[in-house]
């Protein structure tokens, strides 16, 4: 029953988020601030992880290709498919659930325990819209982060595979272009948009409705990470079934 209550509360929250709008000029400033806090500040860790994950995928694939009948171009092919289909959109989103999600939960949760949300409500401001709507809009730029992750993942794979001597540069480029299906990019970005919405709203829900003090803010951040990851994984499964099977 508790889960049903939380799910209902989450959808009511969404109704509030898109309800009475905050003044446009204020909203514009908030959106730019959120883009900086949520997106720009995540680029470093995303770039770092993507590059090395791409590299590891290439090395693992190369080391497991012991059959001489399998062409070396498969290293690039496998790296491309893994990075575009799963590692960039899903794996990076799980990382972002930890980084961005915890930030959202703790910032809104702190405002909750220090009565800042009550202060907004007393002033007649729709606090759900003021706090969460700019985050949702800022996260619309999240696919750019994933595009960068895809690119750097493949660069990492190229670097590891070619510099490691597993495959030549021409073979790698050839493998990269083998059987490329552009719909895989559509699939990856469709789910990225869904993950972006989840990343903005599920942690916000945990921050907005938490009760207690500083300790509970920490607990809410942990719970938020767990649930955001669960929702991302389940959504990933459903979208994959719907679009690829």
């Amino acid at each position: 029953m508790n889960y049903l209550h939380s799910i209902g509360e989450y959808f009511l929250m969404l109704k509030g988020v898109f309800g009475r709008m905050t003044k446009r000029s204020v909203l514009k400033d908030l959106i730019f601030k959120e883009i900086d806090d949520l997106i720009i500040s995540s680029l470093g860790i995303v770039a770092f992880l993507s590059f090395f994950i791409g590299g590891v995928v290439a090395i693992q694939t190369a080391l497991n290709l012991t059959n001489p009948l399998i062409p070396k171009t498969l290293v690039a092919y496998a790296a491309r498919q893994s990075v575009i289909l799963e590692f960039a959109p899903t794996f990076i989103s799980i990382i972002m659930a930890g980084k961005v999600g915890s930030y959202i939960t703790s910032s809104i949760g702190s405002m909750n325990v220090t009565e800042q949300i009550d202060a907004l409500e007393v002033m007649g401001i729709n606090s759900l819209n003021y706090l969460i709507f700019p985050k949702v809009i800022a996260m619309l730029t999240y696919p750019f982060v994933i595009a960068i992750a895809m690119f750097l993942g493949i660069v990492g794979a190229y670097t590891a595979a070619v510099l490691g001597g597993f495959v030549g540069p021409d073979a790698f480029i050839e493998g990269l272009q083998d059987d490329f299906d552009p719909f895989h990019l559509t699939y990856a970005f469709v789910k990225t948009f869904l993950f972006a919405f989840i990343l903005a709203t599920v942690p916000a829900y945990h921050g907005y409705y938490m009760k207690g003090g500083a300790l509970e803010v920490g607990q809410a951040s942990t719970t938020s990470f767990v649930w955001t990851s669960v929702v991302i994984i389940v959504t990933n499964y459903i979208v994959t079934q719907l679009l690829l099977s």
Partner: peptide
């Protein structure tokens, strides 16, 4: 005026 001030940090 809130008990803790409720100023925006």
């Amino acid at each position: 005026v809130f008990q803790g001030g409720a100023l925006f940090d």
